[in-house]
C-alpha cells in the first residue's frame, strides 16, 4: 500500500490548525485552506488531538488552564515544520505561548520553537510559500476587514490583498477604517453586548458605504459577528472567509445565507 506514494517527490509537510470555529461552524474554510496549501505544494496533515488554542482561558485570566491547553497544542504540533491556520487570532495565540512558560525553560523552548513555525494562512501562502498559482474566479466587488490580532500581532495586511489580486474578475473596494475592531473580541461580545453592538454597527455602516457586495476577512469570529449584524440589519452584503475565494470554493452559501 505505501508503494503508491514512493513515486511522488517528498512534499514539505504542513499541519493544519483548524481552529474551533472553523471546525464547528464552517468546515468549508478548512477544506479551502487544505486545497490552497496543496496547490502551493505542501502535504497537509490534521493532527487529530487538536482542540482549541486556549485563547478564551488566556483572555479570561485563567493562566493554569491556558498552560494545560498550550502544552496539548505543543505536543500535537511541534513535530511539523509548519503549522498553518485560517485565523490570525488563533495563530497569534500560539505566538503568546512562550510568555506563559517564563518559569519553565524546557516548555518555553518548545513553545518558542512552535511559535516560529506557526503561520496565519494568507501570510504563509504569500511570505513563506510565495504562492503565485491562485486558480480562482470571482465576479464581484469585495471589501476586506483587517482582523485585529492578525493585523497587529502578526502583520497580516498586504498578504491577503496580494493573493486576492490573482483572482480573476475580483475587484477590491477598501472600506473606511478597515483596521478598526468589529467588536467581536471573543467573550467581549457577550460580556458587553451593547458596546459590542455599537462597534459592529459602525463597522456595518463602513461596509455598506464601501459599495462592495462581498465582505472578506481572515478570522471567522469577526466574520460571524459582522455577518450576523448585516443579516439583522437587512444589508445585502455576502460574507466569506478569504480562503473560500482564493480556493475558488464559493459554490457554498455565504456565511449566514440559507442553503439552497
Amino acid at each position: 500500500m505505501p508503494a503508491v506514494h514512493t513515486y511522488t517527490p517528498a512534499r514539505p509537510k504542513v499541519a493544519l490548525f483548524v481552529t474551533c470555529l472553523v471546525d464547528m461552524f464552517r468546515p468549508g474554510v478548512g477544506f479551502a485552506a487544505v486545497k490552497l496549501l496543496e496547490q502551493a505544494g505542501y502535504s497537509v496533515e490534521v493532527p487529530p488531538t487538536q482542540t482549541c488554542c486556549g485563547q478564551p482561558a488566556f483572555n479570561s485570566g485563567d493562566r493554569l488552564t491556558t498552560k494545560d491547553i498550550a502544552r496539548q497544542v505543543i505536543d500535537a504540533f511541534e513535530d511539523y515544520p509548519y503549522v498553518v491556520g485560517p485565523s490570525g487570532s488563533c495563530i497569534g495565540m500560539l505566538h503568546h505561548y512562550p510568555e506563559l512558560f517564563a518559569d519553565e525553560p524546557a516548555w518555553q523552548q518548545r513553545a518558542e520553537k512552535l511559535a516560529t513555525r506557526a503561520w496565519e494562512l494568507t501570510s504563509f501562502l504569500q511570505d513563506v510559500a510565495q504562492f503565485q498559482g491562485i486558480d480562482a474566479q470571482f465576479d464581484g466587488t469585495v471589501t476586506y476587514h483587517d482582523s485585529c490580532s492578525g493585523l497587529r500581532e502578526l502583520g497580516v495586511k498586504q498578504q491577503p490583498r496580494t493573493l486576492l489580486g490573482q483572482v480573476k474578475g475580483l475587484e477590491l473596494k477598501e472600506m473606511e477604517e478597515s483596521e478598526t475592531c468589529c467588536g467581536f473580541g471573543g467573550t467581549f461580545c457577550v460580556k458587553y453586548p451593547d458596546i459590542s453592538n455599537r462597534m459592529v454597527s459602525n463597522k456595518t455602516r463602513f461596509i455598506k458605504d464601501s459599495g462592495a457586495n462581498t465582505l472578506l476577512g481572515g478570522d471567522l469570529g469577526c466574520l460571524l459577528n459582522m455577518a450576523g449584524k448585516l443579516k439583522r440589519e437587512g444589508i445585502d452584503v455576502q460574507v466569506r472567509h478569504v480562503a473560500e475565494v482564493l480556493a475558488d470554493a464559493c459554490h457554498q452559501p455565504a456565511i449566514g445565507d440559507a442553503e439552497v
Partner: peptide, 19 residues
C-alpha cells in the same frame, strides 16, 4: 447577548474534523 443585537449564522453541516 449575541442574538439580542445580531443574528447567529448557522453552521455548515458536520464538523471539519469528522469530515
Amino acid at each position: 447577548g449575541w442574538t439580542d443585537w445580531r443574528d447567529m449564522p448557522a453552521p455548515q453541516q458536520g464538523t471539519f474534523m469528522d469530515q
